[in-house]
Computed example of a mutant assay.
Amino acid sequence: MENKNAKKHRRVLTRQSKQQADKSSKQTVEQCVDDVAKLDDLGEILDPVTLDAIMSHFRTSLESSFAHKSQKKDEVEPFFVLLDPESIQNYLEKAWDLDRFVLDNSFLYLLSLDPQLHRTDFKTLIFFKDGRLIKTRENSNNVMRSFFELIGFSYDFIRGISTRVNGKEGHCVPYIFGRYSFLPLSGPTRRQSSWINLSKVQHYRALKGEKGVEIHCENQHVFQLPVRPQFFADKVKQAGQTVHRQEHLLRNVLKNFDYVDGRKEERENNLLGNAFHAPTDRISLISMEDYIRIFQFSFAETALKHPSLRDNPVTDEALHLLRENLYEDLPHLRNAPR
């Protein structure tokens, strides 16, 4: 039989174990170690069965505490943004007020705020994949323009390429460059616009009565957009075609540069490979955007020098216009033969 001291100590330890379970979210690892040391001191008083039962209960409570804490940290409440302005007010109150920040590709929806409609002096509200919310007095176009500078290509540059590839002017042309895919919901070259990160959209559906489109993004985030379903469907199709063309171009480039599945084949005893380490200061000054524009000029110049246009008096004038008006600021073009 257990003596009175053993029973007393068991009641005390049981009560302490329950208190530990109630306060588990505040308990530190150091406190846990101290409690275990106390139990070791009482090993001579308690019988092994009782001590094992108390330790088992203590261990289970501690594991449950850490599991609950870890699960709560990882949980993100999904956004569900409706068309009505009242839905936005709730998110405006929760958002961080930041005037200086760096936008990254994890944003889902960059909303251009209407001062009268949303009753706020903030101009932009940004929803992120991880549940972050940022509101800023910065114009939405300025926010995206700064982001495009980080990517390396402006919206006008990407829009110009898409226009030439598609053969016609487009309204709200998607910004597609590799893994970056964004859709402006109104003309971004003329006024402030909202943007959707198409690379984070999983599927969408048209709302009844053509009142808008509901898009479903990663992490179960849902946004209702005030755009016509046909407009959104056309832009998704256009963006998909652009992605396909870019991937086709990339595959050809990788093939021509001896890349296979994104990995370069090693070349042994290669003269040019060794010469790569020679001084290249002049070439390194050319930005990727200028390099692409040099390609554009080269293609146009080659086309104008086609035999069918060789005797056309307009050819020389066209080449002159290209050099003096469209590509005069290109590096090394001034030294090129005319």
Rank of each mutant, 00 (worst) to 15 (best):
S194H: 10
S181G: 05
L207I: 07
P184T: 07
R205Q: 15
F177T: 06
I176M: 15
Y175F: 13
P174T: 05
I196A: 10
N197F: 02
L198Y: 00
Y175K: 07
P174E: 02
R179L: 09
Q192P: 00
Y175V: 00
T189W: 06
P188C: 06
G178D: 15
F182A: 02
N197V: 02
A206Q: 09
P184W: 04
F182E: 00
I176Y: 01
K200G: 05
L183T: 01
Q192A: 12
G178T: 15
L198W: 01
K200E: 13
R190S: 11
L198S: 00
Q192D: 11
K208A: 13
G187I: 06
F182C: 04
E210A: 15
Y180G: 01
R179K: 15
Q202K: 13
I176L: 15
S186M: 04
Y175R: 11
P174R: 02
L185M: 11
S199R: 10
S186D: 04
W195M: 03
K208F: 13
W195N: 00
S199F: 09
S193V: 05
H203D: 14
L198M: 06
L183A: 03
G212A: 11
S199H: 10
S194D: 08
S193A: 12
T189L: 14
Y204F: 14
V201S: 04
F177K: 12
R191F: 05
T189A: 13
S199M: 09
P174F: 03
A206D: 07
R179F: 11
Y204L: 08
K211P: 04
K211N: 07
R205C: 13
T189R: 14
Q202C: 14
P174W: 00
P184H: 02
S193F: 01
K211G: 06
P188T: 07
G209L: 05
Y204E: 09
V173K: 01
P174D: 01
Q202W: 03
R179A: 09
R179D: 15
R205W: 09
Y180H: 15
R179W: 12
I196Y: 10
L198Q: 00
L183I: 09
A206H: 04
V201N: 03
A206P: 09
P184M: 05
R179Y: 14
S199I: 04
Y175S: 04
R190L: 11
G178Q: 15
V173Q: 08
I196D: 01
